[in-house]
Design a protein around this nucleic acid. Sequence first.
RNA 1: GCGGAUGUGGUGAAAUUGGUAGACACGCUAGACUUAGGAUCUAGUGCCGAGAGGUGUGCGGGUUCGAGUCCCUCCAUCCGCACCA
Length: 939
Amino acid sequence: MYLCPLIAPMEYRFQDIEKKWQHFWHSNQTYRVDEHSTNPPYYVLDMFPYPSGAGLHVGHPLGYIASDIFARYKKHTGFNVLHPMGFDSFGLPAEQYAIQTGQHPAKTTKENIARYRDQLDKLGFNYDWSREIQTSSPSYYKWTQWIFIQLFNSWFNPKTNKAEPIDQLIQYLQAHGLSAEFLASISGGMDTELEPFTAVEWGAFTEGVKQSVLMNFRLAYLGESFVNWCPELGTVLANDEVVNGLSERGGYPVERKLLKQWSMRITAYAQRLLEGLDALDWPESIKDTQRNWIGRSEGASVRFPLINHEGWIEVFTTRPDTLYGVSFVTLAPEHEWVSSLCSVEQKAEVEAYVAKSKHRSERERMADVNTISGVFTGSYVAHPFTHEPIPVWVGDYVLVGYGTGAVMAVPAHDERDFKFATHFFLPIKQVIQPQQPHDFSLGAWTEKAGTLINSEALNGLSVYDAIQKMTDNIAHEGFGSKRINYRLRNAVFGRQRYWGEPIPVYFKDDIPYVIPTETLPLNLPEVDKYLPTEDGDPPLGRAVHWKFEDFYEYEKSTMPGWAGSSWYYLRYLDPTNENMLAAPDKIAYWRNVDLYMGGAEHATGHLLYARFWCKFLKDIGIVPFDEPFKKMINQGMILGRSSFVYRVVGESTFVSAGLKESYRTTPIHVDISLVSNDRLNIEGFKAWRTEFENATFILEPTGEYLCGYEVEKMSKSKYNVQTPDELVERFGADTLRMYEMFLGPVEQSKPWDTKGITGVHGFLKKFWRLFHPSGTFEVNDATPSLEHYKILHKTIRKIREDLDRFSFNTGVSNFMICVNELTEAKGNYREILEPLTVLLAPYAPHITEELWALLGHEPGSLYNAPYPTVNPAYLVESQHEYPVSINGRMRFKMTLSLSLTKEEIETVVMSESQTIKWLEGKDPKKIIIVPGKIVNLVI
RNA sequence: GCGGAUGUGGUGAAAUUGGUAGACACGCUAGACUUAGGAUCUAGUGCCGAGAGGUGUGCGGGUUCGAGUCCCUCCAUCCGCACCA
């Protein structure tokens, strides 16, 4: 069997193998799936990428590889697996590029997609490309527009807790009008100042009035609201697109501006979005972030009647128990009654203050949260119970968008109110006696603990009881009601941009109407430039002959980036359907996503919006489920590992990292392609840039130049970007796939470092060599020994366990251990190698396909081969190597039969010479024996 | 400030139920072979110590026969939210 290897060994030629099988899979449509299968369906989805001009770097495929391995595993274990891919192809970068170059964003996008597709294909994913979608293609956005129309034509009925046709609401209003009670019941999801009206009044309203009333109910609506306006980008942004007062893309300042905007009434779904989280198998951190973002707080609204004015100021409070401690009321500067409330003497001061706050950007306002500012309006409200006059102030610590834009200030029991009161010398009234000593001159007592004092009927109650009682009292006396408030804001849905889905709306007498669904899609028109018009209209204002029925103006803003991604998982189920977004039987077959793989950075954007649309689509009967993604895993970020050379200050001399302490140096980023295991390719470095042509080097004693390193985000400017392409070229896709998994747990962020890749590549070579013991392919059909079976079945068990808990990194290790042991054990048995090939197939699909074919199977059949199962009979052990510990510390080992009883083990251990040595003549106080595990002697 | 995550060799990491800490891999050291190749193979490699041995999972404490794992306190790093009433 072991012949003298005169012929050159047949090496592992990964480049040929990978090219061959990628071509095979493509031309045989190996990964194409349909719903005509007796196997149960399983839906694996990756967050689809935005095809940027830079292409993929090694960080992008991390999640794709993990989900691909899992999808293949599911396929081998008898599931009908759907694993599609597409492109989120509307977006700002292509448009910015278009503005600079005049090139149509569709062209750039197409080129970028081709590049991405090419890069993805090289990694051997099992995507069913026949289902590819692109959000910017009219056949796709036709249905994004269709959903918008459904949202426009729906309202959220709080009684049924779901969306219903707006026509039903119209019928109701015709019959009953709009009562005050009805209005109160819907206050949660609305930001409305609607007045009640009767059925007769409704009938008498003009079309314009009717439509503006209905606009308060529609789930997609045109409303005036404060938005995040970004002048540099010339567009509004959603809350999740603003980070620390700057735009997420580009980092430009963002200001608050009152604008008429298309918005989504996501707040109507706040409670359902919150409740739905509990049942989801998502990372806790994402669920927490969403809970936080939704920000539910339970409390009461309380009305304070104005003195010498009509009406009242309504506040929201979570602490109605402290009502007797109110010493002033504060309004947000944007509160609509500020100007009408200020007295003649205070007018100038108030107006100046309001003007100042308006011009402060969101960022400035956040930057000095500790600066206390405010101004007295000169007006008073009456305390609802004591009727004492309470001064009304304006302060920018009160936010117009939260609660009612007004707060009742209880300085003794709220930290901000306390600071405000001490700054302006306002009274501080204690109404809760804490159990422990507390100095009320130093700060507020904000714990929800203690006994009520100075509060008439509430005196003596605990905080908890007082909250209940006061909430009831307020409602009973008619001063307010119990109320649940959410931090979640309605989402702005229009962008003053070109490269997005046109909003399917036209205007007739200034009233917006949706276009008939039969006329969809409303195609994105051509424009001469991608800039706003001279009149300040969005770029769509440049389109010529672009009118509904050649007469009515279309809406000129487009949809935001998150529109297309909010429902794309449904389109994969039926990507070419021209009559509906997806056929009901296909939706019913595949259902929602079983495993969703993607980044955690979408926690409050995409993942919340997609859940919202899913709930809406359920309400209108399109989907039979309430949540889009059952289980989610967030892959960690792969960070770059930048390399540095150290230039001696003022010279063209570079000193090696080990010697740099003796010099004054400046670190300079060096392209990582010039560095291998921290050693600099000096000739390459000199040739890299002309300025380094004549550089001199101070080397280590070994004659090498060592580079320093730092872990940073991967970026072109840091010369630390690693593309998958070059690694696929050098080591092959199977190596790259396994190496990315080998780096560590998928959900953990980690620095990229190619150092270890040779280890994984070496493993695949070693695996290949098992099938080529003397150079050529050769397997042994004889029956393997028990030892071989044991190695195999131990591995099967571990690999399956690792896959079931998404522990891909330990999976790779276990394959390595297996191949090391089989190499050691010798013997290229078919009965061992064949199941091992299937076992490895999800991780390394190319090499296993090649070997599978060499083993004599039909090419391409590996994908459908059943996954090996464990035969426990091979794993039964008769002996165990017992660690013997003295006082919990392992001292030596003894191999004993597992059939021994505790007593027998004790006898053997106690008579062992090592034991006697360690006992030093003492008697053990206690002997712990756990059969099959350990022995511990306590002395 | 609130919430979450993480902390283990020179490096990436493993330890699934409280039971041999550092599997696997990189790197490093020494050696073998070779048509110097980024090939292959052998041995070693947590730290201190010549060795016996001691010591070791961010710090300090606790529970336990036994703790990386459970409990408490603190520290550091990262992420999310943040005048949210």
